[in-house]
Amino acid sequence: MATPTMDKLEALEADNGSHLITVTFRIRRFNPEVSADAVWEDFQLDIDPKERVLDALHKIKWELDGSLTFRRSCAHGICGSDAMRINGRNRLACKTLIKDISPEKPITVEAIKGLTVLKDLVVDMDPFFQAYRDVMPFLVTTGNEPTRERLQSAEDRERFDDTTKCILCAACTSSCPVFWNDGQYFGPAAIVNAHRFIFDSRDEAGEQRLEILNDKDGVWRCRTTFNCTDACPRGIEVTKAIQEVKRALITRRY
């Protein structure tokens, strides 16, 4: 009843007679205090294939090389701090099981692209959050504050449900080729978070946010490559959200 991947894993296990397998982690190291160049460094670990890449990074940092630098906080896919490029794809290290990413070959781990690398896997997130702030990601209303909560029908809530799930990990924005080449582009995450308010029936600044995204570096720079949708660890249909913003702009203007 073994699946093909389990067969391969069992073959790897036989070597050391335990449930652990030997995996090579090829990590892109960068330390500006030591060298201006980034280099690949290999680490070999005996690790349970059902552990996550984050566990492997912990093991390396705690047992092999304390200078390895990366961000993580919740370790459970909620805080969005550990997006990284694992085997060439943006993922959360804390949600990626080692058995799912061909551990028989070296597993590459590097910082997300398009943002300045500060050290090892840590990038400067400032431009990312600046684009996020630029779309006014907060409820804007006029008139008196209601004395009770602002009610909304289930259908109205459903309209923007998908984009409420964003954890601002930057996996989408740093997978976008337009963003790689020109960091002035707002990027998918900012558009997703604008979408969350534009289509919220309680919010009154939708028009203003649409105008912000009608920028030369706004939604029109999207080339529909779907990298963002593929990258999102929350399964948000990012490209669809961007297209909905484009459509809203067009239907409100023409």
Binding site: D215, G218, W220
Partner: peptide, 22 residues
């Protein structure tokens, strides 16, 4: 800081041209 508004930042890069082009 990246994306910061400075004296060199154009006042507005909004407009309907990019939408029309799209």
């Amino acid at each position: 800081a990246p994306r910061k508004r400075t004296s060199k930042t154009p006042r507005s890069t909004r407009g309907n041209f990019e939408m029309a082009a799209w």
